[in-house]
Design a protein around this nucleic acid. Structure first.
Lengths: 207, 207
DNA sequence: TAGATTGTTAATCGATTAACAATC
DNA sequence: TAGATTGTTAATCGATTAACAATC
């Protein structure tokens, strides 16, 4: 906790390390060298060694890294063992699709529910999830409140909903809305499908 | 086309420029300074001027940038006027949700259909879209084939499906699968929801 | 003209990489 | 031991920023 936070460039790579380490473990490997990991990630061995070092993962001289050790340490740093509580707000297409995301099945995150403001939707059940009134988030006692919300409302209500969530003490938002959010003391990660499509389009145009 | 390609850092900002320029235009503004744009984007005025300069958007000395001019030029560079054809492959939750994405309603991309391999799914209609057999992509005559596919299959079939698409001449993939793809001559943009959640979790753990 | 703002140069900053002594 | 591989330093690279002359 609250140790030195790594630069964003490194944070982006953490899930990829976990992915490859897990894959190697599934293939019954027990150790891996920085060179081997580097090749999988498409980066240099130097960078792998530096990243792992910064994470506090120690290799073994002339030998490499123990896969289980490295995986455990990174998963711990990412907070995967704490099973963050997550609420989805916005029961449109995307919100619904996300309720059955693999991440919410014992992979470090616990989905506590899907919420919306629309009276037409509240109470209906889709995907085995009953849509709840977003206002009922207030009634959840502090310690059980989600730390992360997935924001999948319309772009128009995105900002207001984000503020509402922040007022309840939510400190992190995974934003699927077509809006750039900026709230004090709230971490935001954007998933802008629009932007990604445009980036592909730009690159296609210039190849 | 095929002029000098900008560094990824700049490409990432292009959709944001478009977003803010559009917003300003909706507010009946006609000009904007680099300082004003910079504040909205959360970057420096220097960077805005440099970005726009690299894009071939010329400002006017002592005056600023004409919003319509800047927007048109960037939209052109991104290829928004060419209306790229897009096919979704994988008719699971995510694939379905994406069929009704705003991007496919006259915003520069044209959805030509949603495809799957599962005989159980093929032919069924959801969201007004009939699911087609992925093999029928072959039958589309060259010029009408999509340039971009949205890959939303299971992680297991992701790689095989991506190769299949590449063999049909598809040159760009928006990848929603939990896999890192790497194909020669195919542009990939990843939307890794898992990774984004983990990044939030890491940051929460270290704040 | 005076004021505002661009376009561009040169300085800065920070991440990446190469290289290699230390070590098992 | 010889070979492999780490951990770390110093060099490199490239994006960002500050500064300011040029210009409307």
């Amino acid at each position: 906790m609250q140790k030195n936070i790594l630069p964003r460039e490194v944070i982006i790579r953490l899930p990829k390390y976990l992915r490859y380490l897990r894959e190697l473990a599934l293939h019954d490997k027990t150790k891996v060298s920085s060179g081997e990991l580097a090749e999988k990630l498409g980066i240099t061995a130097s960078q792998v060694r530096r990243d792992l070092g910064q994470l506090g993962v120690n290799g073994h001289n002339g030998f490499g890294y123990l896969i289980s050790e490295a995986h455990r340490k990174i998963a711990e740093e990412v907070g995967l063992y704490d099973s963050q509580k997550v609420a989805i707000i916005g029961a449109g297409n995307i919100g619904h699709a996300l309720t059955s995301h693999r991440m919410f099945r014992g992979r470090g995150f616990e989905l506590i529910g899907i919420y919306d403001r629309d009276p037409e939707l509240i109470g209906t059940v889709i995907n085995g999830q009953q849509i709840k009134d977003v206002e009922t988030l207030r009634d959840i006692p502090e310690p059980e409140r989600p730390g992360i919300i997935v924001l999948a409302t319309s772009s128009e209500s995105a900002e207001e909903t984000a503020r509402f969530a922040a007022s309840l003490g939510i400190r992190a938002i995974l934003n699927f809305c077509y809006t750039d959010l900026d709230l004090d003391d709230v971490l935001i990660e954007n998933i802008h499908i629009d932007d990604s499509l445009m980036m592909l389009s730009y690159q296609l145009n210039h190849k």
